[in-house]
């Protein structure tokens, strides 16, 4: 037997809290893909992605937009007859592909996730306007106009604050974060 971890086991290992989900138990029934509300926007259906994982097609899987199109609605998870937490597996694939720095070009998901995390680490809270530049840029001019309209509307209704909030114990909070991921020394 080879000592190398199969791709399927690698992914299962990235699903830390849910403990070695039985991706291998998949019976390829397609309940997940039949259920998925975003399946139309995926290049492979969730079932096909599981098939590719179990067959060890690493590059094809990482190049897929499937897991970046997952809305985390968990409908597949609750219906899966094999008890696979598919939505959690999609998160695992996102993590895996970001760690490996290997994902489809032009996706907003990875950029968004990173800037979101950066924002939380910087302030302890999330704040919508700060997010805007990353994705408005991706949407092109038309997106910018639409976004600006919406944002102005919200601003007028008092639903967008002008300054981001920060939590008070930010230093300690960042120390806490530092114990898990490297974010540079405290300034």
């Amino acid at each position: 037997m080879s000592n190398e971890l199969s791709f399927s086991n690698e992914i299962a290992n990235v699903m830390y809290a849910t403990h070695g989900n039985p991706i291998k138990d998949c019976l390829q029934c397609g309940t997940c893909s039949g259920t998925c509300p975003a399946v139309e926007f995926m290049d492979h259906t969730p079932r096909a992605i599981i098939g590719l994982i179990n067959a060890g097609y690493r590059d094809e899987v990482l190049a897929s937009n499937t897991f970046w199109s997952c809305a985390s609605c968990y409908h597949c998870t609750v219906r899966c007859p094999a008890g696979i937490d598919i939505a959690d597996m999609m998160y695992a694939l996102k993590r895996y592909s970001m760690w490996k720095g290997q994902h489809q070009e032009g996706l907003i998901g990875p950029v968004f996730a990173q800037s979101f995390v950066k924002m939380i680490v910087d302030s302890g809270r999330s704040f919508e306007p700060l997010l805007a530049p990353t994705y408005i840029f991706k949407h092109g001019p038309r997106g910018l106009v639409q976004e600006a309209q919406t944002a102005t509307g919200l601003m007028l209704k008092g639903r967008l604050p002008l300054l981001p909030k920060k939590i008070k114990g930010l230093k300690k909070f960042q120390n806490m974060v530092r114990r898990i991921i490297p974010i540079g020394e405290p300034s």
């Binding site: 893909s33 039949g34 259920t35 399946v39 139309e40 492979h44 259906t45």
Partner: peptide, 30 residues
């Protein structure tokens, strides 16, 4: 495996019908 069955039509052909939503796994399409 059938995912759901609904009577909520989205296109005219579905009006008044039961809509069976399923992935045809052999072609990989919902």
């Amino acid at each position: 495996k059938v995912a759901e069955i609904t009577d909520a039509a989205r296109i005219p052909e579905e009006e008044g019908k039961l809509i069976v939503q399923v992935e045809d796994t052999l072609i990989g399409k919902q």
